[in-house]
């Protein structure tokens, strides 16, 4: 119970309070302690980088154990191992490692994300219907910005370019700022709950 609940709550509380106090007050020992805490968390965070790799290995080796003909999991694990071997043995600045990054990782990653260009277009076509005032506002500002952001918009409908600048710097700021302030208040409330030990789920508690 002590190690499961009390110690993590104390650690989170002390770390949070020290870091906040060090920011607002010039107290040398507290500032010193806060910089140690931040350094410690950065070291721990490095270890967290490996968790993703462990999860991937566990999941796909299980897949292969269940079905040895699972070609996809095999391809994933082979690519994973080759990348690591090349990166560690030859170095990150080596031609082989750069090759994997430039010609496998970047083209496939970019292509996957660019699928959204196609999906977002059809989504706009199907969902952007001016059925009420809110939808109409969304639709109109969205279309003006889409045209105003590209050279052809200024050629076909010259008002779209200045209208986009105005929407972005005035109308958009009014709406976004309310969302930002409200979001920040919620965010601060959650942070406070973590620090005072009311939100233990954040670090695996219940």
């Amino acid at each position: 119970m002590f190690l499961r609940k009390t110690v993590p709550t104390i650690i989170a509380g002390v770390c949070g309070v020290v870091v906040v106090v060090a920011y607002f007050f010039e107290i040398a020992p507290i500032k010193d302690l806060a910089s140690h805490i931040l350094k410690w968390q950065s070291v721990i965070a490095v270890f967290a980088l490996g968790l993703g790799g462990v999860n991937i290995i566990r999941l796909h080796t299980k897949n292969l154990q269940r079905d040895p003909k699972n070609f996809y999991s095999l391809a994933l694990l082979v690519t994973f191992v080759i990348t690591i071997v090349v990166g560690l043995a030859m170095g990150q600045t080596s031609a082989a490692y750069t090759f994997i990054f430039d010609y496998i990782n970047v083209p496939t990653g970019s292509a996957i994300f660019s699928l959204l260009a196609f999906y977002i277009g059809t989504a706009a076509y199907r969902a952007f219907r001016a059925k009420n005032a809110e939808a109409a506002i969304l639709l109109i500002t969205g279309c003006i910005v889409m045209l105003g952001r590209v050279p052809i918009g200024a050629k076909i409908l010259p008002f779209t370019a200045p209208a986009t600048d105005w929407i972005m710097s005035v109308l958009n700021v009014g709406g976004q700022r309310g969302v930002m302030i409200a979001g920040a208040i919620g965010f601060i409330a959650v942070s406070l709950r973590i620090i005072v030990g009311l939100e233990r789920r954040a670090y695996g508690g219940e």
Partner: peptide, 17 residues
């Protein structure tokens, strides 16, 4: 939970301030 609590506490403090 021990390392996570340190990360979450420090992270929450840094972000909140």
């Amino acid at each position: 939970r021990l390392p996570l609590s340190l990360m979450m506490g420090a992270g929450a403090g840094v972000a909140m301030r």
